[in-house]
């Protein structure tokens, strides 16, 4: 039972990170119907930006309060990652909008290759590990010799996730921007005719997705303390799985899917086998897409003849 609770805590933490990345997939898919293949690598880039920002802040500028440092790191990561994602959309996807359907997909795969290899070339192929931060833990229960702990990191991750999701939800549900996004989702041409700046709305969607990925990236750095240029692909696919599981196009679905994927991964590793944890994630992806492509909260997609 203790193991179960511990894994539950770990799973929710991991799931928060997946959920934050998944929103980027789901929003872009919702608005332009494209799987943004490079999103996982945008996330990876954000972990590096966070890493560099943290190093610069703590070693050069001597910021001693770790929470203050993390706050600044978070903002820096969000700003720069958003800019990168905005540029990618501008350079690699916008010229292809409305053309051959495969072209943006290939372009996105190309962009994903560019990002991971750029980071490899610019920062080297080795793992980058930072000194662990925020290491204290609360011991929730120590019955039976097994400690169930909740670390500061985990609290931080959950609090930041919930807080940012609330802000994000407010933007999408209550502001004119969110309304424009939903209008573009329904019918881009009509939205344009009604005066919605479609290009701008799509750009902002990419920016928002990237900002949340940067949040995930910063939290990932805090949680694991290690980053690598190749760490975009697998979290990316898992987050995409989360988006599909929750119902692609649905924002609450992405968060729900993220939590589920996080929990499944953690429990699978704890009770079955660590080696096959990624196989489990990929299998869920395949099974969900084949048997319930509309996901948990998505709308069914009927084909009219």
């Amino acid at each position: 039972m203790e193991v179960f609770f511990q894994q539950l805590i770990n799973g929710v933490t991991l799931g928060s990170i997946y959920g934050l990345i998944a929103i980027g997939y789901t929003m872009v898919f919702g608005i332009i119907g494209m799987v943004n293949f490079s999103h996982g690598d945008v996330f990876m880039v954000s972990t590096f930006i966070a890493l560099i920002a943290l190093m610069v802040l703590t070693t050069w500028l001597g910021v001693s309060s770790i929470l203050l440092a993390l706050l600044i790191v978070l903002i820096i990561a969000m700003v720069f990652t958003s800019l990168i994602s905005w540029t990618i959309e501008r350079v690699a996807y916008r010229p292809l909008r409305g053309s051959f359907r495969l072209a943006p997909l290939i372009s996105a795969i190309g962009m994903s290759i560019v990002l991971s290899n750029f980071v490899q070339v610019a920062q080297g192929p080795r793992n980058k590990a930072i000194d662990p931060i925020l290491n204290s833990v609360f011991v929730l229960s120590a019955a039976g010799g097994y400690q169930v702990t909740l670390s500061y990191k985990q609290i931080l991750i959950m609090v930041v996730t919930v807080g940012l999701l609330a802000i994000f939800w407010w933007v999408v549900a209550k502001t004119p921007l969110g309304r424009a996004q939903r209008a573009c989702e329904q019918d881009r041409k009509m939205a344009a005719l009604l005066g919605v700046d479609v290009d701008r709305t799509i750009s902002i969607t990419f920016v928002m997705g990237a900002a949340l990925a940067a949040v995930a990236g910063t939290l990932y750095l805090v949680y694991y303390g290690v980053v690598n240029f190749s760490d975009g692909f697998t979290p990316g696919v898992k987050a995409f799985t989360a988006a599909v599981l929750g119902g692609i196009g649905s924002l609450p679905g992405a968060v729900l899917g993220g939590l589920l994927i996080g929990l499944i991964e953690v429990f699978w590793s704890a009770y079955f086998s660590v080696e096959y944890k990624d196989v489990a994630a990929f299998s869920i992806l395949a099974i969900v897409l084949i048997f319930m492509p509309q996901g948990i909260l998505g709308r069914p997609d009927v084909e009219k003849v």
């Binding site: 690699a92 372009s107 795969i109 962009m111 290759i113 290899n117």
Partner: peptide, 19 residues
């Protein structure tokens, strides 16, 4: 080192140029 970087870049450029 730049092999895949150039490869990915070429993918993007060719797609934008000739979708």
């Amino acid at each position: 080192q730049y092999r895949m970087l150039i490869f990915g870049f070429a993918m993007v450029v060719i797609m934008v140029w000739k979708p």
